[in-house]
Design a protein around this nucleic acid. Sequence first.
RNA 1: UCCUCGGUAGCUCAAUCGGCAGAGCAUCCGGCUGUUAACCGGGUGGUUGUUGGUUCGAAUCCAACCCGAGGAGCCA
Length: 447
Amino acid sequence: MNKRIAIRQMSAHVEQEVTLEGWLYTKTDKGRLQFLQVRDGTGICQAVVFKKNVSSEAFDHARKLTQESSLRVTGTVKADARAPGTPGGYELDVTDMEVVQIADEYPIQPKEHGVEFLIRNRHLWIRSARQWAVLRVRATVIRAIRDWLDDNGFLNVDTPILTPNAAEGTTTLFEIDFHGEPAYLAQTGQLYNEANIFAFGKVYCFGPTFRAEKSKTRRHLQEFWMVEPEIAFCDLNGLMEIEEQFVSYIVQRCLAENAEELKVLERNISSLERVAPSFPRIHYDEAVALLNRAAAAGESVPGYEDKVPHIEWGDDFGSPHETYIAAQFDKPVFVHHYPTQVKAFYMEPEPDRPQVCRSVDLLAPEGYGEISGGSERMAEVDKLTAGIKAHGLPMASYDWYIDLRRYGTVAHSGFGLGLERTVAWICGAAHLREVIAFPRILGSMRP
RNA sequence: UCCUCGGUAGCUCAAUCGGCAGAGCAUCCGGCUGUUAACCGGGUGGUUGUUGGUUCGAAUCCAACCCGAGGAGCCA
């Protein structure tokens, strides 16, 4: 029995005889010479089958291999600059092979396909090189998120997915039946996070969240993952410092650990290398002025056909606005102090100017939009109850939340970072559906 | 909910003014010792999204519906 190794470890086994277990990605048959591209989940490696080097049975088996057939292939690892693969530069000079199964005709070819077809075959599409690379980067982003928070004094306290009422509005909730009582799939764990900081100081929750928005764009999913850190004794400025450290760490971890994956994705690395503290910060007032100067000059929005639309002070930004602002910077940019009226009820108004609140969105470069939204939370009972009234929300639902301000209230802040938008940005992915294994998008949840 | 675009072979797409349903890839057969989405020769493969209408004749024109994509709004 030969040593079984992973393709990723091939460079450590040059001139040794090893066995790879995997699937045939594609094949080039040259008569007495066959090139097999073998995947094993860790990479793709070229296995070269010379007729004179193997038994006639093994050679015939190789000829019969179809795309995605499962196999064990044994041979000597050779360093060869001509060898393609991930990582390339090494190939297997085959001495023997065993077919596990000859696969049926495989629907996905290593060429262009339409979106509908690929989504319908998502269970197979995840084997393709691009999808494989994206999902590996996603796993790195998740590790980086947990590592940074765990190493910086945050305690992971997860929050419920079944909730009795909306945190921020009711139109985008998935309703389910909780034994005769209506319940909703969580859109955020933030309110519970705020309870948790009074026990643990700095906490985060990290899990799936659900939005029944009728949104059908490349930036929306019905089910997506969000990490939500929440910090006691922290104001808006403190929050932005944490966010820029956190996001920079995530990006740098991907650069360090996923060079091969980013190469498969043909991602421009230099724009990611710039992602380091500190990030530019602009006030909502400045952003409005910037947008209206651009609108007056008739500038167009990168990636859109339309010109920059004029904006009235007090309105929230639309996607074209966000995209234009983000395009003015070569790093993620903070926009802070949004108008109080367009933001959620719990955001702390600026004491000297209550028309704006201590909120901040982080906009990713290259058109990937808002990857994070956060704020300093209202710390006083009276302000909070006024805020709940002003938004027309049922006071009774928030009794425990208001309670938190009665027992040792402090300035506190938090944000939510959208996992898929972050991964899409790092990978340069065209659509969020590519950065989660089984996307839930409007009108489709199969497979 | 609204706007725009689309649906033809397993996949990606052609089909001129309404006039024989056509390629490439995949698959199958044959050839080839350095291929990178190989190449060369041959074969298989069709209820043109659905229903109805106009017409001698419809993939093509008309109507309704179904499905998909991108975007707006909303949001991470």
